[in-house]
Design a protein around this nucleic acid. Sequence first.
DNA 1: GTCTATAACGGGATAGAC
DNA 2: GTCTATCCCGTTATAGAC
Lengths: 206, 206
Amino acid sequence: MIASIPTKDRILDAAEKLFGTDGFEATSLRDITTAAQVNLAAVNYHFQSKDSLIEAVIARRIEPVNRKRLERLDAIGENPTVEQILTAYLSPLFELDFEAVLPLMGRVHSNPEQFVDRVYRRHLSAVVERFRTVLRRALPDLPDDEMWWRLHFSIGAITHVLCWGRILPAVTDGLCDISDRGALIRRAVQFLAGGFRAAATVHGNT
Amino acid sequence: MIASIPTKDRILDAAEKLFGTDGFEATSLRDITTAAQVNLAAVNYHFQSKDSLIEAVIARRIEPVNRKRLERLDAIGENPTVEQILTAYLSPLFELDFEAVLPLMGRVHSNPEQFVDRVYRRHLSAVVERFRTVLRRALPDLPDDEMWWRLHFSIGAITHVLCWGRILPAVTDGLCDISDRGALIRRAVQFLAGGFRAAATVHGNT
DNA sequence: GTCTATAACGGGATAGAC
DNA sequence: GTCTATCCCGTTATAGAC
């Protein structure tokens, strides 16, 4: 052991970084214990299995984010604007680290088959439901189905930034800057609010 | 061999389905050859490795989509609306099968580290560049950096639908219907066009 | 709690008969 | 082109000493 950080936390730190960059299946316990500079068997001692480790890594990050989301939603009062609601949802996420933890969140959001039960149903669905209710008050003319679609479009837009964040500057000749988080949140909120406010036509089978 | 479909195509069909639902790492060659009802060694005969198989599976679907995208972009004339441009980009994608091929496309779009070279740079960047140029003419007041961000928000929104498509009805009590593709395309285009048209404020370091 | 050593297994890939 | 059999490696997980 090199630093004074407990073994369990060293494993969590290394795992979340590697899971984020390489994916859950592609990351072996050996990769994790090597990066964390702990013994291989420590993973199965502190966590019971790789699967439990994955759950622990995710829960450690999602729970504080969701707590802040609900706090900020409560803080903006009874009749917030769409922009305020979206900011309450997004800002706790984008305060996290783009190198280590945001890629992990991206993985979680883009693997429904793997995580819909252990993440969406357990950690996310109640929060989404709260925000959906508030958004419905802010956009009373939007039909329920359209609201759901737009929520998913929005979550997808954000998920993509989580997944691609670190390499966005490279594929856009430096035009996409991820260092200014306040600006990034405002950009996202403006775009998504524009989408939520777009006219919703009735869709038939044409 | 049960049907008359050539072995090579049987492998591609089974692989794209399994890659889409389970992911690339989680799908073994044994899974694929069992589903395709072909011999294990056939994969290494027709393709050289699992990695080459992955590339072949992706290229088979992406290339026709991109050809149609450019055809439809050409077909809408010199000064198309934002809605027309977005429809030209999205419609060839959403004509594909939500059970087999769209989940695969979702995987590809949400794994930048794995696919930025073999997919984005090879198959996608030229097409995105064409659409970015046309969009810039349709939205002359939008700064270049904002354009890039909004393109990525849009691609993310769509990617999310590709990844989550099959289970969206389940998590929304049936409100999200993916069977009517025309309606889905129109919904997405309306949302994204609203986002692209949103006012873009200048972002400082506040 | 932490280590070494190893079990038990499944993975990709290939040799060689047909 | 297609098959069987097998090699060789990396994986998760655990047993047992310290």
